[in-house]
């Protein structure tokens, strides 16, 4: 039960920190992240949400709800264009669930699924911004200069943060004695 678990505090706090770290890291390391022609986009929020699915076990975190709320905050605060991330975050959660149920959750399957999630996420982001006229990049340059570096950065995040976060969940994911 999510409501009885200590994760009820830990999960939202982690989500909040991930949300703000995305922007803060993009600002602090903007020289490294956005050096021409490559641009790496930090997606710690996505990492936190997807890892939430892998580590929740019996707790059943209401991930879709959290995804919608963070999506709206992301739209309003970061991009100023409402409507994209509020749909995209829950979509990725759904995708992770759809693929994840066929595999037993190990590090290797998790990183594969996260890879697919990231690729779909970035592609949908590119497509939507292309349609409303914010992105002006050809598909090949998107693949080479945005998708590849972004995947690299976020997979590094994943490798570095997977075990610490799994320990965190193991520590807090204990049902209180009733």
């Amino acid at each position: 039960m999510y409501r009885l678990s200590k994760l009820k505090y830990v999960f939202p706090i982690g989500l909040l920190i991930a949300f703000f770290l995305d922007g803060a890291l993009s600002n602090v390391f903007s020289g490294a992240f956005f050096s021409y022609p490559y641009s790496m986009v930090s997606h710690l929020v996505l990492l936190w949400l997807v890892l939430g699915y892998f580590f929740e076990n019996e707790v059943q975190i209401p991930l879709t709800g959290f995804a919608v709320v963070t999506g709206i905050a992301f739209d309003l605060y970061y991009s100023g264009i409402l409507g994209l991330f509020m749909v995209l975050f829950p979509l990725i959660i759904g995708l992770t669930r759809a693929i994840g149920k066929y595999f037993s959750p190990t590090f290797l399957t998790a990183i594969m699924i996260y890879f697919i999630d990231l690729a779909v996420f970035e592609f949908a982001n590119y497509l939507a911004y292309m349609i409303i006229g914010i992105a002006h990049a050809s598909f090949s340059s998107f693949l080479l200069y945005t998708l590849a570096p972004t995947l690299a950065l976020n997979l590094v995040y994943f490798v570095v943060l997977y075990f610490p976060i799994s320990l965190l969940y193991a520590h807090y994911n204990v049902e209180p004695r009733s």
């Binding site: 600002n27 956005f34 986009v41 605060y77 991009s79 590119y126």
Partner: peptide, 15 residues
């Protein structure tokens, strides 16, 4: 002072 930057490759925006 700059608080954050939009984490996106399509928008160069500061807050």
């Amino acid at each position: 002072s700059v608080m954050t930057r939009t984490p996106s490759s399509w928008q160069n925006q500061l807050i």
